[in-house]
């Protein structure tokens, strides 16, 4: 069963097309990753799916309701959490929970039960009277997720939920997302941390408002990358990067920490062959070279560079 079906969703701001005929579908209970660079149209798409913005053309069914004609009904089946953790900093933890509970019509025992649940997942038991503004980012993030799903929505939209949060908190946040998905909640998440995209069961990538790749991470890696990728170490990394860009047998090259990833054309198969060619042409000594399996980052860099 599909939770979200987008059909040629388009949004124009004047003459600028932010989202251009994007179509995809999201199955119930899956974690769906929505990736793209800043300004690619991620937030605009999410805002349309949540009923915050009207599409210029096209439509989408969210939880079975049309975002164009039944925006009111859409709002009853979704939860939304933005990267800015829209909590009231001058209210206490308990007051924030009660407020969002009240907004979704929860009261009495059902509110109490959800409040306990949120306090548990955010590790805030006994801290109901703490001002939300004084909480650390990771805790705030979990509280924001808790309040976003206080009414047990079928679908939850997370707009870059992990930006600005430390790696440990990010990991435990993803565990929380998994447990939501296991309970049957559809999770639609945007992120620009590509290692997080590996946790998603399905991924789409958009660039300049257009959908350019779709599938799970394994499919993306095998389908879009056919040539070999080498990880290379060298004392003259930057010069190597610059000269390698101009070589005919190099497709993509980009820097990854203290190494560079180099995608070659199909004529090169062996590491030694590549090493000899590079050293003889550039005169720069390589200290290490090995074939590596492509990461999602390699896939996206390849796709985005390939377009240019």
């Amino acid at each position: 069963m599909n939770s979200i079906v987008a059909d040629n969703l388009t949004k124009k701001f004047g003459s600028f097309t932010s989202v251009d005929s994007v179509s995809f579908s999201v199955k119930q209970g899956e974690i769906f990753g929505f990736l793209g660079a800043n300004g690619a149209g991620k937030s605009t798409t999410i805002k349309m799916l949540c009923g915050l913005l009207e599409p210029t053309s096209g439509d989408a069914a969210v939880g079975g309701y049309s975002i164009k004609k039944e925006a009111d009904k859409v709002k009853t089946v979704i939860g939304y959490m933005s990267q800015r953790f829209s909590l009231y900093n001058d209210l206490t933890v308990g007051e924030n929970i009660n407020f969002f509970g009240g907004v979704y019509g929860l009261y009495g025992n059902s509110l109490k039960e959800r409040r306990e649940w949120i306090l548990d997942i955010a590790n805030l038991r006994g801290k109901e009277n703490t001002l939300t503004g004084s909480l650390p980012g990771g805790v705030k993030q979990r509280l924001a997720l808790g309040t976003a799903v206080i009414h047990r929505p079928e679908i939850v939209f997370l707009d870059e939920p992990t930006s600005g949060v430390d790696p440990v908190s990010r990991r435990s946040f993803w565990e929380l997302i998994h447990s939501l998905s296991e309970e049957g909640t559809t999770v639609f998440v945007t992120t620009h941390y590509l290692e997080e995209a590996e946790f998603c069961s399905n991924i789409i990538l958009i660039d300049a408002g257009r959908l350019i790749a779709e599938g799970n991470s394994k499919f993306l890696k095998s389908n879009y990358i056919t040539n070999k990728i080498f990880e290379i170490r060298s004392p003259g990394l930057i010069e190597l990067l610059d000269s390698a860009k101009k070589l005919p047998f190099v497709e993509d090259v980009s820097i990854f920490g203290n190494s560079i990833h180099l995608m070659v054309t199909s004529e090169i198969e062996e590491a030694d062959d590549l090493k000899n060619r590079l050293e003889s042409i550039t005169g720069i000594k390589l200290t290490g070279i090995e074939v590596i399996p492509p990461s999602l980052e390699d896939v996206f860099i390849h796709l985005l560079e390939g377009k240019k």
């Binding site: 949540c50 009923g51 915050l52 009111d72 709002k75 009853t76 979704i78 939860g79 939304y80 933005s82 800015r84 829209s86 909590l87 009231y88 900093n89 969002f100 907004v103 979704y104 019509g105 976003a148 939209f157």
Partner: peptide
Amino acid sequence: EKSTIDQINVSPV
């Protein structure tokens, strides 16, 4: 300014 309005706008309010 604090974008808390988005959180309310996605709710049935």
